[in-house]
Nucleic acid binder design. Structure first.
Lengths: 245, 245
DNA sequence: TTCGCTTGCGAACGATGTTCGTGCCGATGT
DNA sequence: ACATCGGCACGAACATCGTTCGCAAGCGAA
């Protein structure tokens, strides 16, 4: 202790190079954590190297000592989010229920950082947490009696489906952010507009759409996600998966 | 005829303002068609306003008289591609087969312009061709006996699934383009690397993945797409859809 | 001490989407 | 036939973006 000069007010002509910031000395973790904060607060489009650097009280060039480029930062961000996913121990008798719960859990974790899905769809996940989750899913299904190849493909399709749905949700969220309205007003406006538009379509060329406008627009993101999830799980029955009903 | 002066070599001191270009006089259609050519030949990342303008022998500002902004151009591009989708007349007895064929057909049309999926996932399709396809899908399923709300949600999930899968394929294609290798070499290299990596994982923490490496990597894009498609269609059975088996 | 290496960072490069101002050209009104 | 006017083409510029370069400062090893 004591090797640093005690804090003393700077001479007024010695203008401080910056707002002192007093940040931790910059590390990959700090960069990732800051990036996640920006992503959650302002969305994918606001997530730039400059924005992250500014949040850390430095310039964009400083980041490149800890991160190869933006793509690598996005990879790290994605795995950082996947770290929040808790994987259960396989219980052979309840494989279908476990898979459904896990899929919903992943859906919720990703949705909590909605715009991360723009990243998830942009590259093949191979970080440690992605591996952990894949291993858990394989264990659940194979120990439950699903043939290994079917289980492998199922995991692939499930992850694709989850990422795509969250991605779609993030699109709506981005538009809502851009519109300035609050969430409720935005979606009722949005679907109202769509409904009005559908109803003005010529009935002779669009008999089905005009007749079933309400069905087309009914149901929010969550309900539709569960519907598709149950389709995928239900379809497994004919591929040698032990059915629980 | 003859109202144009016959072609004569320009005086050498009169440098032509550009390659004479002799383009058609610029229209929304010409812009969209050119954009599609760029997209197919060089991918989504190469599709810039400047690139399209250059291809048309003009500057980027000229496009904005015919197209509001890049997003609108992408919308137009997407519907232009959907125009290539042929929609069948509904045949009530074969609704499931018709839906499967139509989904595969859409998958193929989108795959032929692979990078268009980056657009498809980025906004809610509402162009005339998207409407036409939705109407056809509704007709097939409802006339086949599927309850209207289930049919509506099914269409939503199917379109999401198709777009997501083509999108994933476009990612691989983009990486392959960037790598400079040809398609075959690229995918065998790529999956070879993944397989090698999986096999080096510690067996105690990843018993499932190390044991089933081959299953995880087996099957190309098309086979997996059909697998997921059949999961979705098969899952419909429990939602009041008349089953054909 | 001196060397070398990592880290921080200001400045700059090339590229992007988009806007502004200015012409031109052809249709329209008289 | 001539004047006028509106839309289209387009060069230039602006604000951003990701990324690289070159240099200064700190620090551990020799």
């Amino acid at each position: 202790m004591g090797e640093q000069a005690q804090a003393v007010p700077l001479p007024p002509w010695r203008t401080p190079r910056k707002a002192p910031a007093a940040r931790q000395p910059l590390s990959q973790d700090a960069i990732v954590e800051t990036g996640l904060r920006v992503l959650d607060a302002e969305g994918f489009d606001a997530l730039s190297m400059r924005r992250v650097a500014q949040e850390l009280g430095t310039g964009p060039a400083s980041l490149y000592a800890h991160v190869a480029n933006k793509d690598e930062l996005l990879d790290l961000l994605y795995d950082r989010v996947l770290a929040e996913v808790e994987t259960p121990r396989a219980d052979p008798g309840r494989w279908r229920e476990q898979m459904r719960d896990l899929a919903l859990h992943i859906y919720e974790v990703l949705s909590a950082h909605a715009d991360i899905a723009r990243v998830a769809m942009a590259d093949i996940p191979s970080g440690p947490n992605a591996l952990r989750i894949t291993e858990a899913e394989l264990a659940i299904m194979i120990s439950g009696g699903v043939p290994p190849r079917i289980a492998s493909w199922m995991i692939d399709r499930l992850n694709l489906y989850i990422a795509a749905d969250v991605h779609e949700g993030a699109m709506y969220a981005a538009r809502q952010r851009a519109s300035g309205k609050d969430a409720g007003e935005f979606i009722s406006d949005f679907f109202g507009r769509f409904g009005d538009y559908y109803r003005t379509l010529p009935e002779d060329r669009f008999p089905m759409m005009t007749a079933h406008v309400d069905d087309l627009l009914e149901g929010g993101g969550r309900v539709r996600f569960e519907f598709g999830l149950d389709l995928l799980l239900g379809g497994l029955a004919r591929y040698g998966a032990p059915g629980d009903r």
